[in-house]
Amino acid sequence: MNLDSAPERADVAAILEPLDVGLEPALASLHARLVREAQTTHVLDIAYRVVDSPVGKLLLAATENGIIRVAFELENHQAVLERLASSVSPNILHAPSQLEAAAQQLSEYFKGSRTSFHLPLDFSLSRGFRLNVLHHLPDIAYGTTESYAEVALAAGSPNAVRAVGTACATNPLPVIVPCHRVVRSDGSYGGYLGGTEAKRTLLTLEAAA
């Protein structure tokens, strides 16, 4: 569904509101048909859903290339989707089935039965050194951490410690791309996009497995 369809520009909040909870059968059927038609006519550029987790509700968004965004509640899911609409494509639809594999793997991770993710990822929101950092993060083993300095070295720029911090703070794929495993040299947590408690929860979960 094109969010920019003029002159009848739809209310973004209404379009983006999740539709899979408590729907009347007729509305659920209509929504399913819209998803199918969007896929058939290739106008569904971004599918999204929201899942529950121990660190709050997570927004998952994906293009045909893979997961492009994971967002915490404190980021404001509606605002995240609006940014995706303006920067990637306005063709966004709430299509939970398109993200079933991601939701399942996240559920397994939070239950402690999964230590790595095997999902197609779309890194188009990151470039340059930040992208180098993101590509390295999955190499940090589950249940372990690396310092910002160690990540800078691994990413090819030993002096770019602050840039590593920026890359982690702007990671569009948190949890799946584990920036929570990057800590300060003294072992303290440092900042985290989802908040300090979310970072503590993730690291505690992995340490307990």
Rank of each mutant, 00 (worst) to 15 (best):
L81T: 05
S113T: 14
V70N: 00
A101C: 13
P178N: 03
P138I: 08
A26F: 11
L131Y: 08
E197Q: 09
A61L: 00
R200D: 08
K199A: 08
V88C: 05
I67S: 03
P158M: 06
I15E: 14
P7Y: 06
N132D: 11
T41Q: 15
H77V: 05
A79P: 01
L93W: 01
P172C: 03
V55W: 02
V161S: 02
A167L: 01
E17M: 15
L153G: 07
V183W: 02
H31R: 12
L193M: 13
A61H: 00
V151D: 07
A47F: 01
A198L: 04
I68R: 03
A149K: 07
E146G: 09
A169L: 11
A207V: 02
S86C: 07
Q39S: 14
A169N: 11
F117V: 04
G194E: 00
A13S: 15
S113G: 09
T166I: 13
V183R: 03
M1K: 07
I68K: 05
G112W: 10
P172G: 06
L173E: 00
A26T: 15
S124M: 09
H77G: 06
R200M: 08
A103C: 12
S89I: 09
L119Q: 03
T170V: 11
A207M: 09
L173Y: 00
Q104D: 14
V80W: 04
I140N: 00
I67K: 02
A47I: 04
V12W: 15
M1I: 09
P172M: 03
S53F: 07
R36F: 13
V35C: 10
L134W: 05
Q104R: 13
G112Y: 10
E75P: 10
K57T: 13
F110Y: 03
V80A: 05
P174I: 05
A47H: 00
P25M: 08
A32I: 06
I68V: 12
A141D: 09
P54I: 06
L74C: 15
L99C: 09
E24I: 13
G187I: 11
S157Y: 08
E37F: 13
G165F: 05
R162A: 12
A209C: 15
L19M: 14
L131H: 13
G194K: 03
A154T: 02
D4Y: 13
A38E: 12
P172Y: 00
G66M: 11
N132W: 03
H180R: 01
R181Y: 01
A10F: 09
K199P: 05
L203Y: 04
S29F: 06
L153Q: 13
L16E: 04
A38D: 05
L81Y: 04
S124C: 08
H180D: 06
